[in-house]
Computed example of a mutant assay.
Amino acid sequence: MTKSLGLALAGLLAAAGSARADLQTCGDAQYDPAQYVCHDGNFLCPIIAGEGLSYCSGACYSTYMYTCTNNVLTPLQPLAGGTPFTLTVSNPTAEAVDGLAVDACNQRWNLGIETCSYCPDTGIECPVGDTTVVSAPDTTASGSEPAMDVIVPGGQVVYLDPSGAVGYTQAHSASIPEGSTQGGLAAYSGGGFVNLNSGGYGWVACPSTASGGGGGYTLFAVNADNKATLASCTPVNLKVNVQPSGTVGAWQYT
């Protein structure tokens, strides 16, 4: 996601020299409609993770992070800290993953499988625990990170492990793998869940290779170090679905 036209213009130059019959015209240039969208008959913006970027006064932008009002581009408002939300995958060009819910299981964020949760046998009443709910970080506090929306004392913090996979701490433990990234993840009202860490290149869904199989996909944040490794995975956006105040996802996610 970017508000720069640089990527679009670079692609435009490549497309201009092509003789492909399916190229379309935007202003004085030709473009591939599978890779770009034309705004107002003159302005090209790239398609990223299935989203044709919108246009605002000289800039391409993602509606998962920005809005355009009276030709002024402004960031969406982050959710207030502690707001519960779920996540849905979006990539209209990738039918296999488009519309899947993000599910927590085995200390990972996954797609296309069931949520894994636990309720202690102590006679207390637990949430159903079959939906993965996340608690928004407090973006006004330095170092704040999102957390799983749980009851278990100490909570379960969300992080990016060294491979880029989205993980969360085990209950009763603050331990995360060495080299992991904490913080830099934002949830926007009316928008998406975004990795703001330096060098972030969005999200991808990779077929699960977990021991024992089970199908589904694992969610990764792409960066300069893992970009080549994850090149065959499917780029996706993460849509934020705000839940009613007081929603609790589970006692704990496993």
Rank of each mutant, 00 (worst) to 15 (best):
Q170N: 14
T63M: 03
I176R: 09
T69K: 10
T218D: 15
A104F: 15
P153D: 12
A174C: 01
V157F: 06
A94D: 08
C105G: 13
P127T: 12
Q156Y: 07
L7N: 08
V242L: 05
Q156M: 06
Q170C: 07
G81H: 08
V133N: 00
L111I: 04
G216N: 10
A165V: 06
S62F: 01
V97Q: 11
G213K: 07
G215V: 09
P84V: 11
N223H: 13
Q24L: 14
G52Q: 05
Q30W: 02
A136C: 10
T131K: 07
C56F: 01
G143V: 07
K239A: 09
L196F: 14
A250N: 07
Q35C: 05
T2A: 08
P78Y: 10
A231C: 05
T234V: 15
G202S: 01
L9A: 06
S57E: 13
S173G: 11
G167L: 01
G112Y: 09
L23I: 04
N70F: 02
T86M: 10
N241L: 09
C206F: 07
G199T: 08
Y168F: 15
G179H: 12
V102I: 13
D98S: 12
S4T: 09
G52I: 10
S175L: 15
G184R: 04
T209K: 05
A80N: 14
I113C: 15
T229R: 12
W109C: 12
C105S: 10
W203G: 04
I176G: 01
P146S: 04
I124P: 02
F193P: 02
W109P: 00
L160H: 02
P235H: 02
Y61L: 00
K3N: 14
A94F: 05
V240R: 03
N70H: 14
T122N: 15
G155K: 09
V133F: 09
D138M: 04
A16W: 02
S211L: 12
L5M: 12
V134E: 01
C126E: 03
V133I: 13
S198P: 03
A205N: 00
D103W: 04
Q182F: 06
G200W: 11
E178L: 13
P120I: 01
I151G: 05
T115C: 13
G202I: 01
L185D: 05
A221L: 15
L5Y: 13
C68A: 12
P235R: 03
P78Q: 11
N237I: 03
A14D: 15
D28R: 00
Y55L: 14
D149W: 02
D22V: 08
V194L: 14
T254V: 14
A187D: 11
Y159M: 00
L230K: 03
N71V: 05
L79H: 07
T234N: 08
V150H: 02
A21Y: 07
Y118S: 09
L13E: 08
